[in-house]
Computed example of a mutant assay.
Amino acid sequence: MAMSLLGRSAALFVLGTTGATGVAAQDAPRRTRIAAGPQLVPRYPGYKGVVLRPFLDISRARGDTPFIFEAADESASISVFDTERFSVGPTLSFEGSRRTRDVPGVRGVGFTVEPGLFAQYTIAEPLRARLELRQGIGGHKGLIGVASVDYVARDRDDWLFAIGPRVTYSNGKYQRAYFGVPVESVATSRLTAFRPGGGIQAVGGNAGFLKQLTPQWGIYVYGKYERLVDDASRSPIVRRYGSRNQWSGGLSLTYTFRGRQD
């Protein structure tokens, strides 16, 4: 999996509730939309199958301004510089661990905190491009970047449908953590030694749909597919214990409430 969707859920508690969400008049009351439900995601990059995790999302807007579009697979972020089409700011995600027993004989990968930066640009009204670059602290200690484009169709907050491609890049340190087999692990793992370099890790796409059922309640569903490519796809770990096909998806209920004026 190119990006930890569980990581997005956890990071929302750090960043998601403090981000700016629009340019409406500052004296308008805030609206907050909370989405909560289950999701199925790979346990770690290259994992075969999925595990059940919570899926959380928090969005805020002022007055009757529509909630800003956020794809389900993007990291939690705060926009610190905005124009009509462009925004940039810090982002935060987390990546799950790979245990030693998941790949016997090869050292595991610890839980990773991934702070970084994002930039996004509205190419035309229905098209939004986004780039994230994050550095792992602990765990894989590598660098990972995700480029995405989303076609967004919506009727304000009544309904929204988005779909678009994804390309994931990671450096050699990241790929060696999840896909590499050190020479010293060959005897214990019975896998061929493999030292991947940096480059394109995966390509795929994401789609999401949100529908408001009442002024307060709604539903949110998403699905994502990625295909490991290049060195990641050639990894002996992926070929024996994992899969080049990475699937994820989630379903949640949303609740919108209006706060007091600031």
Rank of each mutant, 00 (worst) to 15 (best):
G199D: 11
G208V: 04
V229A: 03
Q212A: 08
L213G: 08
S233Y: 02
G199Y: 07
E226H: 09
R240N: 07
E226G: 08
I237S: 06
T214L: 01
K224P: 01
Y241Q: 08
N206L: 15
G242L: 01
G242P: 06
T214G: 02
A202Q: 11
G204F: 12
S233V: 03
E226A: 11
L228H: 03
G223W: 06
L228V: 02
Q216K: 14
K224L: 08
R240M: 03
P236S: 01
I200M: 12
G197C: 04
A202S: 15
N245F: 03
R234C: 07
G223C: 09
K211N: 13
R234V: 05
G197K: 11
Q201L: 13
S243T: 09
A232V: 03
Y220M: 05
G199M: 11
G197N: 12
P215T: 13
P215W: 02
R239C: 04
G223Q: 07
G198M: 06
G205V: 12
Y222F: 15
W217V: 06
A193N: 09
D230V: 06
Y241A: 04
S243L: 06
R240V: 10
G242C: 05
S243W: 07
L210T: 15
Q216I: 14
D230I: 06
G204S: 12
Y220Q: 09
G197H: 11
K224G: 10
G205A: 15
G223L: 06
I237V: 12
V221I: 10
P236Y: 02
K224N: 09
V203K: 01
Y225D: 04
L228P: 03
G208A: 15
S233Q: 07
A193P: 08
R244Q: 06
P196D: 07
S243Y: 06
Y222E: 00
N206I: 14
D230L: 09
